[in-house]
Design a protein around this nucleic acid. Structure first.
Lengths: 255, 255
DNA sequence: GATCATAGTCGTCTGCCTGACGATAAACAG
DNA sequence: CTGTTTATCGTCAGGCAGACGACTATGATC
């Protein structure tokens, strides 16, 4: 069939953001309250339309800055900001009742932030622990409802997008050094371990964890300083090293 | 800002397909020759517009069937067709000179097929070894040009999409049982090993490989039959087992 | 100030898995 | 019958992870 430039169906294209951080030993996601229908008053992932001359990654970075004030770090710009990567694209017809919207979801891993009030209304954006936003997960609940929170499901298909983002983060810190994206520029081995524990929802042996991360070349670089942030013996401070892939990977305890 | 349904910029949304198979010990991708500008006469990945009421995955499956006659297997429908998954989305402004096109690329892993002539013109679609379509890869070439083939780069940004798809396939067969998607319904351990060798471009020790795959519970199920397809001693036939993840993973020899 | 609780760091031991590789088995080609 | 090819089974050493003991260095409490 011959090409007809006017024959393509028009779509709206948006970016949605799964912004994750670790706060008080819990994996948290950034959610915004919808001020207008559909799903008015419900929580949703931040996001917005892609501009007509804008790259997808640029749109995601722009939305991130608009909603959180966070900036994204380039590949070589180490730890002045958050990690951003494309997650997946969601385009079910009917996922948005207003029109045909294809959403390119992005995943952001950010260090703990003071408060997500930048740029928007204060109480319409917040960090929510992911286990209050999502059902328990693959192991179907048999016992009584254990969901910790007040949560109605997120708007649109955002619960599924969030679940996919969380799963991506959980698997990615296994075989990459991305867990450091959740940490401040300088951090201790214990802080990094608490990141793994929060993201995976498990307890790790501090001694084996210490051996593993300090024994992996390029993962951690000692800065020379020490600190006491949790009580107890002072700990060495590290920066993220140049290694991006962990080989052999950090093993998640058996499911 | 209030919602204005007419305010979103219109995009064209397409699906592009990275269809991989293993033919004659080489990893091959399906490419089609473009019959019209832009990039007229150049090879490109198969793909097409998403219909206005069509899911992204359905569009990819439809294009696959139209171009190859292949059918996609559902999650429980074991090995009557190919494996399909979403790869990534490419939306640079200017990636298509005609208009703003966002392409949701999908990855298909298929067993070796008789001929890709289904549905289309015979010599405008073919299997091409990926090493004739792509530059050698991360190790930048210092020696003379060693690219095996006649290849001009693929049209649009399809070389990058193909490279991403190949990389996804290479890493995914490490920790999943997806390599069986390249095999016919019944296959031998040696045939499965040749799939790994073709996808990774390395030689594997037959004895260690045999120990690994037969020792991983749920990876392979013996059918009872034996066959001689390569000369030499007859080999046991297997089907793909129910396991989808390989733990511990199949290790790719050091890079 | 002594004692306790909390964290961090270093070691040891055992078991599993992998890579290297020898040996045997079962077909086919001359 | 002999050599070649492929499949399959075994052996052995090294590396790494899990379990866990021991010691260190801080703050909190009595």
């Amino acid at each position: 069939m011959p090409y007809d430039p006017s024959a393509f169906p028009p779509f709206a294209v948006t970016v949605d953001l799964v912004v994750l951080t670790v706060r008080r030993h819990a994996l948290c996601a950034l959610v915004v309250r919808r001020g207008e229908p559909p799903y008015q008053g419900r929580w949703a992932l931040p996001g917005g339309f892609v501009r007509i001359d804008e790259d997808l990654g640029a749109a995601a970075a722009r939305e991130l800055t608009e909603e959180t004030g966070l900036h994204v770090q380039g590949p070589d710009d180490r730890h002045t900001g958050a990690h951003l990567e494309q997650l997946a694209t969601y385009g079910d017809p009917g996922r948005d009742p207003r029109m045909r919207v294809v959403s390119v979801a992005h995943l952001v891993l950010a260090p703990d932030l003071p408060a997500p009030t930048a740029g928007g209304d204060a109480d319409s954006v917040r960090w929510a622990p992911v286990d209050t936003l999502l059902p328990p997960g693959p192991p179907s609940g048999d016992g009584p409802d254990r969901s910790g929170g007040q949560s109605a499901p997120l708007a649109f298909d955002h619960s599924r997008i969030l679940a996919d983002g969380v799963e991506r983060a959980r698997s990615k810190i296994e075989y990459s050094s991305l867990a450091t994206a959740f940490c401040p520029p300088e951090f201790t081995v214990g802080e990094l371990r608490r990141v793994y524990e929060a993201v995976w929802g498990v307890a790790l042996d501090p001694r084996n964890f210490h051996r593993k991360v300090t024994g992996t070349p390029g993962f951690l670089v000692p800065t020379g300083g020490t600190t006491t942030r949790q009580g107890g013996r002072p700990a060495q401070l590290f920066r993220a090293g140049g290694a991006t892939v962990l080989n052999p990977p950090m093993l998640r305890p058996e499911v």
